[in-house]
Design a protein around this nucleic acid. Structure first.
Lengths: 148, 148
DNA sequence: ATATTACCTACTAAAACGATAGGAATTGTA
DNA sequence: TACAATTCCTATCGTTTTAGTAGGTAATAT
């Protein structure tokens, strides 16, 4: 299951997506509207900024904003950043690979590994194409895709 | 990621699968060969027995055994029993459904939900067909599928 | 100056996870 | 019958992870 952190991140980002290019949005506004504990959200947004997804400005009228168009922010990036691996076993993880501790036989011939590689591929098949935009409620505010 | 518990369960079950219909296998033998902490394994096997996957006999020459042919033990059952939901969000879980706490809008129109429903379906697509037999190393002991 | 905001580090409480302890009950065998 | 080998069962424990809070510092607009 996705952690609360990841879910909070998704909800905060969709909110920012729905206010893309509308200036700086302060933490408290996001927290209040999306019902996220403000201090926890603070830590999450900080992390998203450090990962190059968000920009920020301190001080009065400051806040956060998306650095890229929602379509250019991949869902997998958010998930990996918050929760780590997509795969169900370390030995089939693309970005967080680790050898299997239990399996005595070589990976190449491990039936367990083979199945969970299939699972990972099926999962990635679905989510690799998805962006923040796909997570946003359709028919809302920012769908002007063709601003020059 | 799968918990250690689930991974231990899988390894223990494949071992039992490879010794299907060979009588009672004691915990310690499984633990030693598959490198699983014996007491932890004890708790796991107990749970698998209570779920109707394993049978057991106490006392001398006792031990555990598969109640059904490995082909008749679905991978999903093992996973759900040990780790809970397959889905990444409670609101798209088949067996552990819970409504979403964060989403204000109705489930039917939630884009987030829609995507993670796709993920769940893709995952199930892969694993629902799989059985313990598929987890076992092929070419080993029990492949007499056509006993009578 | 002041108010508002992000930034940062540390901390805490609760839950989950991984594992262990120890005794009761069951069973085969000498 | 005594004993050894086993499952059964409950409780406990230590660590890690998760979720969330506290409180001060720095930046910025007015």
């Amino acid at each position: 299951m996705l952690s609360a952190k990841t879910q909070y991140a998704i909800h905060a980002l969709t909110f920012l997506g729905e206010h893309y290019q509308e200036g700086f949005i302060p933490i408290n506004q996001i927290a209040e509207i999306r019902k996220i504990p403000a201090k926890f959200l603070e830590a999450i947004l900080l992390e998203l900024r450090k990962a190059g997804i968000l920009g920020s400005k301190a001080g009065k009228n400051g806040g956060y904003y998306l650095l890229r168009h929602p379509r250019e922010i991949p869902l997998v990036q958010i998930m990996r950043l918050m929760d780590g691996p997509i795969a169900l076993l370390p030995c089939v993880s693309k970005m967080f690979y680790e050898p299997c501790r239990l399996c005595p036989y070589p990976e190449s011939s491990c039936s367990i590994r083979k199945i969970f590689l299939e699972v990972r591929d099926a999962t990635l098949e679905v989510i690799e194409g998805k962006s923040l935009q796909d997570l946003m409620q359709s028919g809302n505010s920012y769908e002007s895709d063709f601003v020059i």
